[in-house]
Amino acid sequence: MTSSRKPPIKQGVEARADGGAHPSLTRKSGKGREGAPLLFLIPALVVVFAVLLFPIGFSLYVSTFNWPLSEGMGPRVFVGLGNYGALFTDAEFWNSLKLQLGFVFVALPVELLLGFGAALLLNREFFGARVVRTLLLLPVFFLPVLSGITWRFMLQPRYGPLSQVLVSLGIPETSWLGNPGWAYAAVLMQDIWRMWPFMFMLLYAGLTSIPNELLEAAEIDGAGYWKRIRIVITPLLTPTIMTALLLRLIDALRIFSEVFTMTEGGPGSATLLFSLYTNKQAFTYMKVGMASAMAIFLLVLSVVFAATLVRKNMSLDVLERKAGNR
C-alpha cells in the first residue's frame, strides 16, 4: 500500500543514485579534502561529547558508588552493581515505573484516539478551519511548568475554576490534588489535554498527504465513509501513527516539569514519576549513586525506543529527497 505513494518522487531519486546531491562538490572533496567535513562537524561533536556523552559515562561511573551528594556526608564507597540491585528491591522504584506505565497505557491511547478523530473531522474546509487547526496546537507549546501550575490552580478547592465547575455540575467539593487517586488522574488529564493536539498535528499532516485518487477509487468501489477509514486511511497512516506513538512514548518516559509544579510527586508518592523519583534520590535523599543508576536505566530504555524510531520511521534519504524535490 505504502509503495503506491512513492512513484512521483522516484525520478529524483535515480538522478541522485550515488547518494550525493552535489556531484561536483563531492568530487572536489574526494581530492584530498577529506578533512573538510570533520572541520565543520568539530564544534557540534565537541558540544555533544562534553555535555551529552561525557555526563553519560560519568553517570555510569558514579552509579557504581555509594556516592553522597556532598563531601561532608561521608566517604564514597565502590559498590559495583549494588545500586542497581538495590533499585530492584526498592518499592518506590517499582511504584514510579508503575505510574509511568499508566501514562503509556492510558494517556497515550486516549491522545491517539482524540488526535485521530480530530484529524479526520478537521480534514476539510469550513469557516475558521485554519484558525482552529493552528490554535489547537497552543497547548503543545504551552510552557510545561505553567501547565502544571495552571492545573494546580484550577483544581484548588473552594476557588479553583475547574473545581468550581465540577461543583456546579453537582460533584461534591473535594481536594482533588490532595487525594492520591484523583491526583494521579489529574496528572494524566493534564498530559492528555496538553498532548492530544500533538497527535492531531502529526496525523493531520499524514492524512493530507494521502492522495485523493485513492479515496475516490475506494468510494467508486462502493466503500462507505467508515470502510474508507478502515481499509484505506488507517493502513496508510500506520507509519505516521507509529512515529507519533514512539515520539510520545519517549517523551512520556521523561515527563518532569508539569508534574513537579502540579503535585511535586504527591500526595505521598501518588504521582512520583520516574524522573521525579530520580530527582528525589539525588537531591532529597542525597544518594547520587542511586540516582545515577536510575538515570542509566532510563537512558537505556529511551535509547532503545529512540533507535527503534530512527531505524524504522526516520530516513535521511527521505528527508533529502523531499527537500530536493520542493
Partner: peptide, 17 residues
Amino acid sequence: LIFRMLPQISLVVALYL
C-alpha cells in the same frame, strides 16, 4: 537524532556534579 531524544533527567545529575 537519537541525542535529541535523550532524557534530560538522565544527564542532569552528572551535569550537577
